[in-house]
Design a protein around this nucleic acid. Sequence first.
DNA 1: ATTTTATGCAACCAAATAGTTGCATTTAAA
DNA 2: TTTAAATGCAACTATTTGGTTGCATAAAAT
Lengths: 108, 108
Amino acid sequence: MPHNLNKIFKSIADPTRREIFHLLVLASSALSITQISQHFEISRQGITKHIRMLRDAGLIDMTEKGREHFCLANVKPLKAIQDWVQLYERFWDNKLKSLGDHLDQKNK
Amino acid sequence: MPHNLNKIFKSIADPTRREIFHLLVLASSALSITQISQHFEISRQGITKHIRMLRDAGLIDMTEKGREHFCLANVKPLKAIQDWVQLYERFWDNKLKSLGDHLDQKNK
DNA sequence: ATTTTATGCAACCAAATAGTTGCATTTAAA
DNA sequence: TTTAAATGCAACTATTTGGTTGCATAAAAT
């Protein structure tokens, strides 16, 4: 179990956390908590809480340097979300075959 | 805006709702609220609330027949989730190119 | 015609969430 | 060495969430 699936779902369910994550991916380098919070109107402590949830879901890697705590986006846990979605992708156009059959196939 | 992205994220963030959705996809036919709730230990009213959230996110289509309310899974809104995830997919292996460049490209 | 079934509505509850502020501590800068 | 910056910790609050129960109503079955 790499990172709890539910934590990942919960993490990305909040728009502010998605924004933080997006900001970090865009930055493609580590940003400190203060730097991140400057992009938002909510308090630093509010941002810290969001960052911790993202970290606990594995979506942010953290390193400390002196008094600063740096955050780096880690997209890998999103793979679990994509896997979940892809289970249903086959139905986007139309029912080709029941998902039940599909799962039976995988268990053979 | 087909269906509010945040509602979709919030809907699938709850494990019970994911189970309900999965059940409906597996069924590949409409199930009544009572039928659905029989698969769970929580009360019918609890299930009803979850079903409404899924419906409001577009993940369940509902039809009434007599006194029964039937639910059918609709996977289309999941496309929005996949689109969101795919924005970051390119980073799963490694940074090929920054997301910023990628977005610039799309806006040309 | 009576009873049972399927449901909605409303009130209620506990826990989680998203946010705040104040204060202490460590590190860096003047 | 004093001051400023970056952070954590703790307490507090309001709102949302996930769940419950009781009661009313409409439709179906007996």
